[in-house]
């Protein structure tokens, strides 16, 4: 009888302590750097698959470092634009390219000799591009230049820009070709699910990172999440034109800012737990919001949301090397 009492006491206690929590509202309403509207988003993704190319494919991040007062930069931009085009030789979307304004050629000025005061007065730099310019020792680099998956960096030798090879140069093509030939499938995949509220100008994005193979537990990987704006028509110096400038230059995929906070975001990324990265099949999910009314210390209020994309990449914190990149239109 005593044994029975003990048993039923344990069972009663176990059942009382056990239970089910049924969740009616899965999303936490209060987010890291803004509050998501309670109304239905104006746009949301329907495919749950990032980018125009299969998310399981390896993708290369090409960072075109430039400035609007750099006369040779349009040549490099043209090389990059060709590479990311459907006829660029790679499946459309396999190369994720951003124009990053940094360095002396990107310092805004309303007093450039021979130009109207407003021509180069807009600052296309952002906190992330400025931070990286310093981190990668690009302050005094020869522009234009490029970073391809950020390979070759260490603290004692921070230079890893590869130039662009001059007109007709194949530096970027060759580097990208090598990477793609050696990485048929992505070792890491990034799913981006996004929703956009156009009225309060907020986007919410879930980044789901999956490590297809186990990465060394001694390495730490981070996710960088960015906003880029395509088709900014503005002034650009261009040495190939007789006038030396183009006042209606089409700037493609311009880096605008990083997710994380309203004062420029987190250029060092968001750390991914090694429990996910050191496990084959390990998955980590992060939800981030971007408030276009407050982002980049308020500068984001003038950006054209309809032309914006979310770019995300996973990189090794020690070497900065990018292992996978993704891009999805804000919609």
């Amino acid at each position: 009888m005593k044994a029975k009492n003990i048993f039923w006491s344990i069972i009663t206690a176990a059942i009382a302590l056990s239970g089910c929590d049924e969740i009616a509202t899965p999303l936490v309403q209060k987010q890291v750097n803004s509050i998501l509207p309670t109304t239905k988003p104006a746009f949301w993704d329907s495919s749950a698959v990032s980018g125009p190319y299969a998310y399981t494919q390896y993708k290369v991040l090409l960072e075109d470092c430039m400035g609007d007062q750099c006369p040779n930069c349009p040549t490099a931009c043209a090389i990059g634009d060709t590479l990311i085009s459907p006829t660029g030789g790679y499946p459309y979307g396999q190369i994720v390219m951003m124009e990053e304004n940094m360095g002396d050629f990107a310092i805004p000025s309303n007093n450039v000799a021979g130009y109207p005061s407003y021509a180069f007065s807009t600052d296309y730099r952002c906190y992330a591009s400025t931070t990286w310019c310093t981190l990668f020792n690009l302050t005094s680099a020869t522009y234009p230049t490029g970073l391809i998956n950020r390979y070759g960096w260490n603290t004692s030798s921070p230079n890893m820009d590869v130039g662009y090879g001059g007109p007709g140069g194949t530096v970027w093509q060759d580097s990208i070709k090598d990477l793609i030939n050696n990485n048929h499938n992505a070792a890491v995949t990034i799913h981006i699910y996004d929703s956009a509220w156009t009225s309060p100008r907020i986007i919410g994005a879930t980044f789901q990172v999956t490590f297809k193979t186990a990465f060394p537990g001694s390495n730490t990987y981070s996710l960088e999440a960015l906003v880029v704006e395509d088709h900014i028509v503005s002034w650009q110096k261009d040495g190939d034109l007789i006038l030396g400038y183009d006042s209606t230059y089409d700037h493609r995929n311009v880096l605008r800012g990083a997710f994380g906070n309203t004062s420029g975001g987190l250029p060092s990324g968001i750390v991914i737990p090694t429990s996910a990265s050191s496990t084959a099949g390990g998955t980590w999910t992060s939800f981030q919001t971007y408030d276009f009314t407050k982002g980049e210390n308020g500068n984001a209020s003038s950006w054209n949301m309809a032309n914006c994309y979310i770019v995300a990449f996973v990189f090794n914190q020690a070497t900065q090397a990018v292992v996978q990149a993704e891009m999805i239109k804000v919609e």
């Binding site: 089910c20 987010q31 890291v32 939800f287």
Partner: peptide
């Protein structure tokens, strides 16, 4: 049978259920 798993839910994004039955 009935089985329940308790795990602290402290995710800033999702209201994860702490008791899954």
């Amino acid at each position: 049978s009935f089985v329940s798993n308790y795990q602290v839910a402290d995710n800033p994004t999702y209201n994860f259920p702490e008791n899954v039955g």
